[in-house]
Design a protein around this nucleic acid. Sequence first.
RNA 1: GCCCGGGUGGCGAAACUGGCAGACGCACAGGACUUAAAAUCCUGUGGUGGGGAACCACCGUGUGGGUUCGAUUCCCACCCCGGGCACCA
Length: 812
Amino acid sequence: MPEKPYDHNQIELKWRRKWEDADLYSAREDAGRPKYYVLEMLPYPSGELHIGHIRNYAIGDALARFQWMQGFNVLHPMGWDAFGLPAENAAIKNQRHPREWTLENIAKMKATHRRFAFSYDWDREVSTCEPEYYRWNQWFFLKMLERGLAYRKKALVNWCPQCATVLANEQVVDGCCWRHEGTPVEQRALEQWFLRITAYADELLEDIRGLEGGWPEKVLTMQRNWIGRSEGTEADFQVADTGQAIRVFTTRVDTIYGATCVILAPDHPLVGEIAGEEGRARAKAMVDARAGRDPGDLEKEGFFTGRYAVNPYSRESIPVWVGNFVLLEYGTGAIMAVPAHDDRDFEFCNKYGIAIRPVIRPVDGELGRDSEAAFCDYGIVENSGEFSGLPSAEAQRRMNEKAEREGFGRKAVTYRIKDWGISRQRYWGTPIPVIHCERCGIVPVPEDQLPVRLPLDVRITGQGRSPLAEVPGFVNAACPRCQSPARRETDTMDTFIDSSWYFYRYCDAHNDRAPFDSARIRYWFPIDQYIGGVEHAILHLIYSRFFTKMMRDIGLVSHDEPVKKLFTQGMVIREGVKMSKSKGNVIAADDVAARYGADTSRMFVLFAAPPEKDVDWTDEGVEGIYRFLSRVYRFVTRNAGVERGGSGESDRKVLRKLHQTIRKVTEDFESRWHFNTSIAAIMELVNELYAGEAGISDPVMREILKDLALLFAPFAPYLSQEIWEETGCGEEPVFRQRWPAYDPEIAREEEAEIVVQVNGRLRGRISMPFGSAREEVLDRALQDPRVQPFLSGKRVVKTIVIPDKLVNLVVQ
RNA sequence: GCCCGGGUGGCGAAACUGGCAGACGCACAGGACUUAAAAUCCUGUGGUGGGGAACCACCGUGUGGGUUCGAUUCCCACCCCGGGCACCA
């Protein structure tokens, strides 16, 4: 057959047509086969897939195809995180309905997906904005409401003026909105729905241990920090003349005899009562001054309330202050200040001339006297009544006992993580299924009335309150309990609810009686490999873990964790900077597919760096891959299906290289997924094939071409299939073939090349059969003409022989 | 400040368990083919010095020290870059 030029458009179009309706990747439960669930994070349908998406999917697709070829029953689904603000913003800007805009984007992106031939089972596709999906969000919400895991409270919440809605704590980054860098988040007091994720705080923390090894250590650390469990003591300080007590939380109760004042958060509920009207006003000013500021460069400020509180251990009266650095949301919203042993307290007390009293001495030192800095380590407790002389840990234990015995305190645990605020004053999300009735209060919508559908005729202005509140047909409803006129809840749910369980829905995407059938979940779960960006380390990935535990507790699933292994891939950058719309340096997947083809684009992002690192996109680099694929294609087309009469003299050599390549690629899949080295190995093989082409016999050529098709299958499915067909194997899908096995005997080099060093420096190399005896190797090394000059006149004092690898002669 | 990563040719990278540093690709240079160019194929390509040449020597993995027959790899100190956390009591 004559050599053909590589026409990626023609090849990719041809197979795309054949594959269009073939249902190639559909997954069925099959108890007789081991399953493998590989998942990439579902995208937001912004309208265009970019090259960063392609990288994510190319990694997952390579893995899915490889596992198929290993005989696994692979589940590889895809869907759309289709609710969210951009749709509403687009609606305001272009007068388009969010639904229309979203569905159009999904269609566009799905076309790109198909162009890239990712191996998804599209029959399981999930769009979170469809009532068939979001009704189950509502159903979960009702279940949580029943169990007290969903509740409503008035709270200070994060308000992004750009989004015109509330944000969860996880969605606030450096005091600003996670979607609007540079837009400080405001605090507003609103009635909000919360999910009690804190009920699972301990378990979420504890189960991290079971994820070790399967999840990146970095992500686990971030989650541990986010949960922020700390053990300590709560103690009540009675305030003179008020009948009130201030409860403080401390992790260092052993320092409590050194407490020289109590400090309330400015927004602490007792401030008014303790500090009076004037104090309340000063505190209010403090709260306002703090809002939206970076806590790092906020000077510590405070004022004395005029009242005193009694240290329950020492019975000493100490002043009560209000301080701007004390956080209401953490612990009890009040602290005892021990300036001698805490840097922050030291700074504060030093500024206001409050006493500094050391009560901890270093184990091997003296009690500090001068007041240069706080001593914050553990040590020996001094000047602390009955506890003097005890080491810190022991003192803490006994002090906790005393507090409980006498009832003024107790051992306590606090968490940094707070309950998940899920109310959003926006339109394009899941309606919260409750009704506000004047007589009955908050009444859940009965299950059989789900879904509460999002009305479509809505005016979206982006101003003020929830758009749904402006839709009378939606708002006005009969109370399910007493039938009297009532109002529907008009807030919608945080879209992170949608993504917290979508991967369960993939297992049973069309179920209209339940979110899914538990038996199907038992077959497919847990997710064997989840792949996505590290930016979701504490948002999506902690919510998902919470949802799984909740689902387990309502009897839907029987496992504790949804994801066995997590892989976080690097970004695709350009000229060293992150791609972003505002910089205009985004690379659209469709553009590169048109220019270079889907295969080239995929292979480039896999080749340019190992998958966990960032990849720099360069046109020259992409062209290099294109050249490589062309080179392969030309080789195949000029050698396939013809009697070439090759001499056979290079057979041994190329077969060896072939088996070495198969070994390398297989090992990369089984260990680190360093596909850059897999592809490099295939390039080496192709270079070797070019060099020995004329000397390859016909049967060996046939074998090589077939294996070449198989080696390309995980990375470049179109080219792989085309080679497969060229070699006469028909149109059967390559990825349904068995992954080739390598023969270690054939892969082995004929002779070992042994490096000879003298005093650790390379001086020569010798070739010897594998497994040659130590003495023989040493003998040859000593005889080597290139080594000899470095030995003459010297005495060999030591010899090191590493079999088949190296000889080192130590001379003096 | 604390906790993770990382620092290797002109560039992206490789070296997986302490054993040939720089595989593979990009870029560049030379050659073949061509009237010419592009494409393609072949060759070379860490630095310095020596030699007509095949070749030879020395230096070289952020910096300085250490362990070792041998260190990109292990240990100590430091510098730089990226990420996470940061009044969390």
